[in-house]
Design a binder for these strands. Structure first.
Length: 286
DNA sequence: GACGATGTTGGCAC
DNA sequence: GGTGCCAACATCGT
């Protein structure tokens, strides 16, 4: 759920409230979501709130010492201000004024305190809104991978998730299984512009609320109403009217228009659908 | 009640 | 470097 536009929305909400607040005490109700010793963040003052990829980053300071609080929201994580703790509140940050809650139903998210940014974090790829068209096209076409898994790869580009990859590929009329190195430069440039446009529009609508996503103030996003293919299986393509299809691409549910998004003939492509819903050699014994 | 799907990443095998 | 498959977890729809 929380992809770049949702995380950006949360960060903007926090950025107007958290700077200069001091972290007095941290209560951990579910250790599973914590990496390392998060209590070390107690006593620090929040200097700045930032986003990097799908991470929320709080830059901390305490008498010349610096630190960072990293939050990845996984699938169902929420950072809330001015809210009451609930059954899914996993961590509570008691501030000198108010509190910050970390709620997470499925507990796939992670919170971590670090004095220096960890290596995993530094391996993140470029920000889609900062990389620039030429650079994107050059790097994109240098990869021999299916476009969908490539765009989901956070080391290649950081911040895109299942929703926005499907939406951007639709707008650029690229088949999710097409191979990146077979996409012509003009089409790759179109993809870049589609990604930027979709992300900007989604941010303007405060993200997509498919299941439980809400901003730091508890408000839902509205971009889900503007999705053209994501979770619209069987509904007519807004461009040509063909029924939107759902297939599996590297284990991820993938939505596209079979008429608008074709793999150009002669261009490389990955093996056909492989059943998608059938498949015999799966369903292993745990 | 059982099953499959859900926006996340990471680890393993090949 | 790239893909497939599984794992973590809880909820919801069929």
């Amino acid at each position: 759920m929380p992809e770049l536009p949702e995380v950006e929305t949360i960060v903007r909400g926090l950025a107007s409230r958290l700077p200069n607040r001091r972290i007095e005490r941290i209560e951990v109700f579910q250790p599973r979501v914590i990496i390392g010793d998060i209590q070390r963040a107690e006593g620090f003052t929040i200097a700045q709130v930032r986003r990097r990829g799908k991470f929320v980053l709080l830059d901390l300071e305490r008498g010349g010492r610096r630190g960072h609080l990293l939050a990845h929201l996984g699938m169902t994580g929420q950072l809330r201000l001015a809210a009451e703790p609930g059954p899914y509140t996993r961590v509570l940050f008691q501030l000198d004024k108010g509190a910050l809650l970390y709620n997470d139903v499925r507990q796939f998210g992670r919170l971590e305190f670090a004095e220096r940014l960890p290596a995993r974090f530094k391996r993140l790829g470029s920000e889609p809104l900062e990389i620039g068209e030429e650079e994107f096209v050059r790097r994109f076409r240098a990869r021999r991978a299916m476009v969908k898994p490539l765009l989901l790869n956070q080391a290649f580009l950081s911040g895109l998730g299942n929703i926005y990859v499907d939406e951007a590929l639709f707008r650029a009329r690229i088949h999710p299984r097409a191979l990146a190195n077979r996409i012509r430069p003009g089409r790759a440039a179109k993809l870049y512009r589609a990604i930027v446009r979709v992300l900007r529009e989604a941010i303007a609508h405060r993200g997509s609320s498919i299941s439980n996503y809400v901003g730091s103030d508890g408000r839902r996003g509205a971009f889900q109403h503007l999705h053209k293919v994501y979770r619209r299986t069987g509904l007519p393509c807004p461009v040509c009217g063909a029924a939107i299809r759902r297939i599996l691409v590297s284990q991820r549910g993938t939505h596209f228009c079979p008429r608008c998004q074709k793999i150009r003939s002669g261009a490389g492509r990955a093996p056909e659908p492989i059943g998608g819903t059938l498949g015999s050699a799966r369903r292993g014994a745990r």
